[in-house]
């Protein structure tokens, strides 16, 4: 908690450069404070959020973590000697969770302005097993799920969001926005990237059985492309001044470049260029490192040109 309290005021809004604290309210209940206050704290937060919503603000509320909130409910419930439900949680757990999440909304306030509340709730299930009641009851209500994965954490892939288990049910609604605001082909690119990652997980299963050497070149190339998606696009270093914030426009350029590489490498495979020839082109190295450079956008541009030239040199 102290970390949050000291680091938040120091954070800078990447869009305006102002301190982030200027538009933040923190509600702190550390684990050694009274348990009843912990149960109440999410409601305190939500009420404050609604107050701002009614003034026409768009509020995002982060609750970390709802598991501890549920833990508090369980503790109070057991003190009250209520009949325990699943895993000792009170029987009204599901009800309380949905009452809380359903307060997220977009609404027209009495003042005539439009305001909204977006809720991001952290759930920390014991041992990462999401079959327990808090996770399950939460998943029944929410429409977006970011699954943090211990395997990814172990290899320091951050943010450790598992791309295959996570989902958003808002993709369709947002497609138009992407087309208007980012690029017409962004939704298609996104779909292609997801497909490649999905394909990677299937191929990995085969690799686990027979080894990667046994795969045909075309599939090996797919594995390389998905690795690029993971390392360049999905992985970000929160402590790196450049890498920590990637605007949509840059995300688009990155995906587009990876797609460019994928297309070129597919052509190269067809033309019979050996795998290690085009996998070791300098443009690829430059691409991977571009994230850590301050002039990243220029770098990315140069990578695109380099890539074309270097593939051409290989006869593709």
């Amino acid at each position: 908690m102290t970390e949050v309290l000291t680091e938040f005021p120091a954070l800078e809004d990447p869009k305006t450069g102002d301190p982030l604290m200027n538009r933040t309210v923190l509600i702190a209940n550390t684990s050694n404070m009274p348990v009843a206050a912990r149960e109440a704290s999410v409601y305190t937060g939500m009420t404050i959020a609604e107050y701002y919503r009614d003034m026409g603000y768009n509020v995002s509320l982060m609750a970390d973590s709802t598991s501890r909130w549920a833990e508090a409910m369980r503790e109070i419930s057991s003190r009250l000697e209520e009949m325990p439900g699943e895993e000792g949680y009170p029987a009204y757990l599901a009800g309380r969770l949905s009452e809380f999440y359903e307060r997220a909304c977009r609404a027209e306030a009495l003042c005539g302005k439009e305001g909204s509340i977006s809720v991001i709730g952290a759930v920390s299930p014991p041992g990462g097993d999401i079959s327990e009641p808090v996770s399950q009851n939460t998943l029944r209500i929410v429409r977006v799920f970011w699954a943090l994965d211990t395997k990814l954490r172990e290899r320091r892939h951050f943010p450790a969001i598992d791309w295959l288990t996570s989902y958003s049910l808002y993709n369709k609604q947002l497609a138009q926005w992407y087309t208007d605001e980012v690029a017409a082909d962004f939704p298609a690119l996104r779909e292609w990237a997801m497909l490649t990652l999905q394909r990677e997980s299937e191929l990995q299963e085969i690799v686990q059985l027979v080894g990667s050497d046994a795969l045909p070149d075309e599939q090996k190339a797919t594995l390389e492309v998905s690795k690029m998606i993971r390392e360049i696009f999905l992985q970000q270093n929160a402590y790196h001044p450049v890498d920590t914030y990637s605007p949509m426009s840059r995300q688009y350029v990155m995906l587009k470049l990876i797609k460019q590489y994928a297309d070129l490498s597919a052509k190269a495979v067809q033309a019979g260029v050996p795998l290690d020839k085009f996998e070791s082109i300098p443009a690829r190295q430059r691409f991977i490192r571009a994230k850590l450079e301050t002039n990243i956008d220029d770098e990315l541009k140069a990578v695109g040109e380099d890539m074309d030239a270097q593939f051409r040199a290989l006869g593709v």
Binding site: N32, E75, S78, G88
Partner: peptide, 22 residues
């Protein structure tokens, strides 16, 4: 008392926090 998970008391979280948070 009404036992919690694996028979440990329901307030064990609070109790441990009172130690660790010091």
């Amino acid at each position: 008392e009404v036992p919690g998970r694996r028979g440990y008391p329901g307030y064990m979280y609070t109790d441990l926090a009172q130690l660790y948070e010091r």
